[in-house]
Design a protein around this nucleic acid. Structure first.
Lengths: 211, 211, 211, 211
DNA sequence: GATGAATGAGCGTTCATTCAT
DNA sequence: AATGAATGAACGCTCATTCAT
């Protein structure tokens, strides 16, 4: 029924908002139910239990996130690898900007050593590594890049993608910058674009930085 | 008394370890007491309440952290500004590496919108901004850098300093890298050193990236 | 639902019994739950918190208590004032006798300087004063009674109404008298009836006692 | 040592003040220690435990209280019994007025069904009954008074003695009367004096009230 | 699809008390 | 005589969850 879907989505939205503000353990089922204006038992009905909510959040983030990478890996046959990478980055940045609360929550929660989270996302992270590698291998397949250097490129890129969300409170309070604004997404994409150009497509620079 | 100090420190160490693993709200007073092999009431005795523990953690991180910046700001009179910045970065990286659990916990907890945390650390962050600005102003006082560009430099630098700890689980699981190891600290310092050189001391690059 | 009401009432009855025996602060939520054979969390469910229980007790006492006075104030138009007063006293004594545990608890708890209790009952006490005054004014509106004398009459009457419950343990242990027994209520009503007659309806006696 | 006695007395005074305000169970050892500006462990040193404090309070009240009755029982040989009773009442009222906090606390705590309090004071109450009876027997030894009538006289008298303290908050808030003021003690003594005269020394009145 | 009643476990905290010093 | 450290138990309360309706 239409009503039902709406309830489920309302719950998820309320949960994401609150998880983002207070962290997963700082939010109670009651908090979410109150914000979503539904009965706490309804959450159990739709998501089984609190952990089910967490899983739903992680899925809601990683499915589209990985789809952007998958799409460009498939494009490698027809397009230049640097264009594919830039396209993937652009889509990811835009998606993260449009879902900045979810993004922030997911990247932060992953930084915990929680066994629960790790079990859920480990396959996602493995898939992500594989997809990144596919693109990077096509892009920097010269003898100048050892496998370890390529790994480091991925790490750096990932750090840059997540950074605005893991420091969003700082960006907002101290510098008045908002990752969710279109302006920021555009500007930040240019920074990463420049970094890709400098480190991966211009041999001289790359050599200096990565020894 | 010697015994007392030891107890207080034991509590703090246990707390940092557990907070890092499960997050502040995911850890109970009893968890900490059990790990520290003391009575839960003793935590209230030494830290008043759970929030007192959080404050103690934040102080234990920010006091030394800021002292490294303060030291180099005082050195600006006798040393070249790029050396001062590098020295500060080196000290901070080493301190963070030696206290990687505390570092990870602090940077993660700050990313929450918790009113409590914000009240405690807001003055620290203001001081940090001031100190960074003092150094950056001396370093890039040419007409090429607008105030907004300088702000962005600080943001980027801060992002780089915190990155390994906000993604440490990823680094470890996927890439087998450990921020707490001396090797990593050294290597990572070189990366930042290069970044400082590229963006702040070589005008051509800087111009390109920051428009 | 029938079951629900029953649970709520069971809790209240258990609470009154225990509060009466050990005092409000001497009784724990768990004590009440154990006596009512329900889960401690259920008390929070029905009464929000422990103070909610206290408020429920005070309301359960003062609402009927004041209704007896209100009724007779309305009767002043049709009946003789001394009959109204006696009727009110009779009803109050009977109500107190039937709810002697609650009565004892309420009068005792009021004698504390607790801010919490005072806030709840201050409006009740004001209303009580107003109602007593309405009756007394009709009854002793001769020039022999100054306003201060009338006040003192109310005080004495209130003291007499509460006395058996504030000293019930003494009455029981030392003199084998039980305020909850019908016999005592009847007998005690006669005493107060006589006092009303002596002090308020016979001018000579009244003059002597109240100067 | 002089200092020691002072500390013990300071503790007792603080305890009486707080017990009176919040009740025995509403006051913690820490509260008392804080008010007395001493270490909590000191209370254990002087009074063994919290119950020891309660016992000390009861003793501090009943020893002088009963001494006034004992004194007048001894005087029965030389003085008229009505004078003895009035003298005892006067002394008791003055003592209670001077120690109104202790008085209020003791009479209120006795109204609990607490086993602890009962064990401590039962012998005091028995002694009190014996002493009252000695005086009353001498005073009303005519055939008009059955033993049960005499009991009721004692009950009434006791009720009158305690009333201002069991209702002191009401007297203060609603009528602006303060039992601890000399004025009140004087005035209240007159009321009881009149009552003694009416009920015990004038046969006609007494007969009416007590049947 | 949704709710109110109810539960057992655990929360942060405070308690009275002990004890070495 | 007095204190600070430490403890086990209990406090009021909230938690995620279950279940009949």
């Amino acid at each position: 029924m239409r009503q039902a879907t709406s309830t489920k989505e309302t719950i998820l939205e309320s949960a994401i908002y609150l998880f983002n503000t207070k962290g997963f353990d700082g939010v109670s089922i009651r908090d979410i139910a109150q914000k979503a204006r539904i009965n706490p038992a309804n959450i159990a009905y739709y998501f089984n239990n609190k952990q089910g909510l967490l899983e739903a959040c992680l899925v809601a983030f990683f499915e589209p996130y990985l789809s952007f990478l998958e799409m460009e890996v498939r494009n490698l046959d027809h397009s230049a690898p640097d264009l594919c990478l830039k396209k993937a980055v652009k889509n990811i940045l835009q998606f993260q900007s449009e879902h900045h609360l979810l993004t922030r929550f997911v990247w932060r929660e992953i930084s915990l050593d929680s066994q629960v989270v790790r079990e859920i996302i480990s396959s996602y992270l493995m898939k992500e590594r594989f997809l990144f590698k596919e693109i990077i291998d096509q892009l920097v397949n010269s003898e100048k890049y050892s496998p370890s250097s390529k790994s480091f490129l991925i790490i750096q890129l990932k750090g840059m993608l997540a950074m605005p969300y893991l420091n969003s409170q700082y960006l907002r309070e101290v510098w008045n910058l908002y990752p969710q604004e279109a302006y920021f997404a555009t500007r930040y994409f240019q920074v990463i674009e420049q970094w890709i150009k400098d480190t991966m497509t211009e041999s001289i620079n790359a050599k200096k930085i990565l020894c």
